[in-house]
């Protein structure tokens, strides 16, 4: 075997080892590196009341309520499986809306309401012109084809 081939095999073996270690590390981090927890995880007991955490989900349709003080809102965060009520006092980002994603910093209260200190808006991976955004989804598919 030529030294060149030895080096090639050594490099491939080493690379495979390092890549394998990377994948193992990444999968071990699966839960730890998650940026937020979903309502289903919280409902499944993955959150202790009072512990600082982030809750991420969709704002349920028709769920945003403004309380009498004028600066506090209440809404329901959902992931389709479970729903968690959220309360927040302050200014939300422009993209915060019903049927859109959001991430809230805060903690679960003992009464099952998530008290948020801060709200971030999440947007999805779709980009399109404004007139198409108002079309029903099936028409979008038809025009895109």
């Amino acid at each position: 075997m030529k030294p060149k081939h030895q080096r090639l095999i050594l490099a491939i073996v080493a690379l495979a080892g390092v890549a394998g270690a990377g994948v193992l590390g990444a999968s071990a981090l699966r839960d730890e590196a998650a940026y937020f927890r979903t309502p289903a995880e919280v409902a499944g007991g993955k959150a202790t009341p009072g512990e600082a955490m982030r809750l991420g989900g969709m704002v349920a349709e028709g769920s945003i309520r403004h309380l009498a003080d004028g600066v506090t809102i209440r809404f329901v965060a959902t992931d389709g499986e479970a729903s968690i009520p959220v309360e927040f006092t302050g200014i939300v980002p422009d993209l915060f809306a019903e049927k859109a994603g959001m991430v809230a910093d805060g903690r679960m209260r003992a009464d099952g309401v998530f008290a948020a200190d801060r709200i971030l808006a999440k947007h999805d991976e779709r980009y399109m012109p404004p007139q198409m955004g108002e079309m029903p989804t099936d028409m979008k598919a038809a025009t895109a084809g």
């Binding site: 937020f36 980009y127 399109m128």
Partner: peptide, 23 residues
């Protein structure tokens, strides 16, 4: 894809693009 993230998922994949052709 692996982790919950604030950043949205991939727009352009082998399956196509979720960025409309006009943009």
């Amino acid at each position: 894809v692996w982790w919950n993230s604030l950043h949205q998922g991939p727009s352009i994949t082998l399956g196509g693009s979720s960025i409309d052709a006009a943009l």
